[in-house]
Write a protein that binds this DNA or RNA. Sequence first.
DNA 1: ACCTGAACACCGTTCAAGT
DNA 2: ACCTGAACACCGTTCAAGT
Lengths: 215, 215
Amino acid sequence: MGKPVTTGRRAGLDRDDMVCAALALIEHEGPAALTMRRLAAALDVTTTTIYWHVGSRDELITEVIRHQSERQAGRPITGTTARERVMCAARHVWDNALDNRAITSLAHQTGTTSLLEHPLEVALGRELESAGLTGEPAARALRAILSTVGGLLVLALRNESTVPEEHRAPALWAATHGELAPATIAALTRPGDYEDLFTSTVQAVIDAHVPGPRD
Amino acid sequence: MGKPVTTGRRAGLDRDDMVCAALALIEHEGPAALTMRRLAAALDVTTTTIYWHVGSRDELITEVIRHQSERQAGRPITGTTARERVMCAARHVWDNALDNRAITSLAHQTGTTSLLEHPLEVALGRELESAGLTGEPAARALRAILSTVGGLLVLALRNESTVPEEHRAPALWAATHGELAPATIAALTRPGDYEDLFTSTVQAVIDAHVPGPRD
DNA sequence: ACCTGAACACCGTTCAAGT
DNA sequence: ACCTGAACACCGTTCAAGT
């Protein structure tokens, strides 16, 4: 069953093979490695073959992100209080992004983050509604939590992305703005403990938007 | 005084002219318009001329961002309480980004946001120290506030950036995850009031990290 | 010192042509 | 229906050569 190993034509490739090969390419060689020519070489075909199965590079990326979003879904949401369950749903977004950094970076670069995290965002929205939020407050809470997690992810993923060293810590900073204490300067230049930062920051945003057990 | 209008050589251009022309190009035609060839055409020279004055495209971008960061500095910080002044410094980052969306997007794409906002980030750090924060708590507060503002900016700037419509609101969302209320779905698909979102979210993060007047 | 012309090694995309 | 070869219009970058 399934597709025959070798048909009478040339290659036995379909649209799904392209998407999977693209996903593997991204995971192994980074988001920048996803070019039509390199993907064609990996599949041992010409670039025009990709254009026949998939429409364009944008469509390929969309399909890759959607494919990845499907196998990200499914982690159970734990916790007894509403805030705990909302926090758990937010942490799923955080964990999945850190577990799949290459694809997350690609989604971030192409503005398809919401497509990648969509099932997890829906799960988060469901918990907010279960917490009693409806209408505009629910929408505001959802947007606030997701943007906070997204901002923290940009910070946490900045290190291994393509950021030249000179952009991080020019020596003149300490000279021109020397009034700052070393620890404060470190916050602007060096990486920190993003796990703690995630917990405290997201918890604050959740507490501000989601009614607690004794409100 | 200054440089002569026309020297005995070919063009009277220096490194600063390249950076200014690049900045104008970005503001008028968007971040994607900044290519070596288009910049050379705008200056009526060859691309190799740019490589002589500026090193590479990365160096050009760094110089453009640094140039822009200098004329962004200087808005006064108002407010009487510590939290008010910290909020004001955070709002400066927000306002400047929204007032210069093209350059902000470029900085975001190239991972040089901290370089662009650096003077404003230092001002924010100063207010945190004035509020009594030192060491790790100061660093955590700074990172938390900046990442929150950054995440909200990504959301607010997403609309006019190069995001295809299909990435935003596929019709199947409502079908496969139809349990969500319309307003909650809207939070995932349509833009909202980011001004209100900024105020409430950043205020929550500030309150969580900066001691208030009666703590 | 400052600038040009030509070339190299890449991109995404299209189009006519093959089987 | 599925795939190739060649071409087009772009990129960033380099190198020898001109004045």
